[in-house]
C-alpha cells in the first residue's frame, strides 16, 4: 500500500500533464467542430479528398458534421493520447528505479519483487483510469452545448470503454517491457515505437481489405468506432484477445522481473 501511494504521489504531475494535453486537444477539436457542425459545404470538401487519406483518419465511416461522427473521427486521436500515456507510465514505473539507481534502496527493503510490480502496476492503472475518466468527462462537457441525443451518449460510453481496454493493453505491454528488458534505458523508446508501429499497422489495415487480417496485430483495430456507433456493441472476441494479451504481458513481467539481475 505504501509503494502504491508513493507512486501515485510521484506520478500525479505527469497525470496532470496528460490531462492537460487531453483538455487542450478536446477544446481545440471542439472549436473546430463548431465550424463543421451542420455545414454541408464541408461534406463536399471531404468528398473530394482522396479515399486513402479519409481512411487514414477514419473519416470515411463518419459524417464529420454531426456530433457522433465527429467523436468517431476523434476516437483514434484520443486512443493515441491515452495509450501513449499508458505505455509511458507502464514502461517507466518499473524501469525508472534502475535508471535512477533507487532499486538499491527499494529492493533492499523487505519487499518481494512481485509485490513491487503489483503495487506499481496498480498505481499506473489508477493513473490510466483517472485519465480515461477525465477525458470522458471532458468529451461530455464539451459536447453538452450541441444537445446530443441518447445514441451519442451510448456511443461515447462504448467508445471510452473500448479506449480504456486499448489503454490497458498498452499499459500491460509497457509494464512488461519495463520489467523484462535488460537495457532499461531503452524500454521507454521501444514501448513508444511499438505503439506507433501498431498504429501504422492499423492505418495500413484500414486502407485495403487484403490487409484486413492485420487487425489482429494492432489494438487500435480491435474496436471499430463505426460498429460502435451503428451497432452499439463491442466485439467480444477482441475483448478476449485483449484480456489474453494483458494477461500474457503481466505474467511475463512478473516472471522476468523476479528472475533477472537488477543493474545498478
Amino acid at each position: 500500500m505504501n509503494i502504491y501511494l508513493r507512486e501515485l504521489k510521484a506520478n500525479y504531475k505527469s497525470l496532470l500533464i496528460y490531462c492537460g494535453i487531453s483538455l487542450f486537444f478536446l477544446v481545440t477539436g471542439f472549436t473546430k467542430f463548431k465550424a463543421y457542425a451542420e455545414n454541408p459545404d464541408l461534406l463536399a470538401i471531404l468528398d473530394s479528398m482522396p479515399p486513402a487519406m479519409l481512411a487514414t483518419f477514419n473519416m470515411n465511416a463518419f459524417n464529420l458534421t454531426t456530433l457522433p461522427g465527429f467523436f468517431g473521427v476523434f476516437y483514434v486521436f484520443l486512443g493515441l493520447i491515452l495509450s501513449i500515456a499508458a505505455v509511458m507510465w507502464g514502461s517507466d514505473i518499473i524501469s525508472k528505479e534502475e535508471r535512477d539507481k533507487t532499486v538499491e534502496f527499494s529492493l533492499t527493503l523487505p519487499v518481494r519483487r512481485s509485490t513491487l510490480i503489483t503495487a506499481k502496476s496498480a498505481a499506473a492503472l489508477t493513473n490510466c483510469i483517472a485519465l480515461a475518466l477525465v477525458t470522458w468527462g471532458l468529451v461530455l462537457a464539451n459536447s453538452a452545448r450541441y444537445n446530443p441525443d441518447a445514441e451519442f451518449y451510448s456511443f461515447v460510453s462504448l467508445g471510452m470503454v473500448s479506449l480504456f481496454i486499448i489503454q490497458c493493453i498498452f499499459l500491460a505491454v509497457g509494464i512488461f517491457l519495463g520489467s523484462a528488458m535488460k537495457k532499461h534505458k531503452n524500454s521507454g523508446s521501444v514501448a513508444v515505437s511499438l505503439l506507433l508501429g501498431t498504429y501504422f499497422i492499423s492505418v495500413i489495415a484500414g486502407l485495403n481489405e487484403d490487409f484486413d487480417f492485420l487487425k489482429y496485430f494492432t489494438p487500435f483495430k480491435y474496436f471499430d468506432p463505426a460498429s460502435l456507433l451503428y451497432e452499439s456493441r463491442i466485439d467480444l472476441p477482441f475483448v478476449w484477445l485483449s484480456a489474453g494479451i494483458i494477461a500474457v504481458a503481466l505474467v511475463g513481467a512478473y516472471i522476468a522481473y523476479s528472475k533477472r539481475d537488477l543493474y545498478i
Partner: peptide, 21 residues
C-alpha cells in the same frame, strides 16, 4: 527467503540514491 531476511538487514550502499523530490 529474501524479503524475510531483509526485515533484519540494514544496508548502507557505497553511493546512496533516493527518490528525489
Amino acid at each position: 527467503h529474501g524479503p524475510e531476511i531483509r526485515q533484519e538487514i540494514g544496508y548502507l550502499p557505497s553511493e546512496v540514491f533516493y527518490y528525489e523530490g
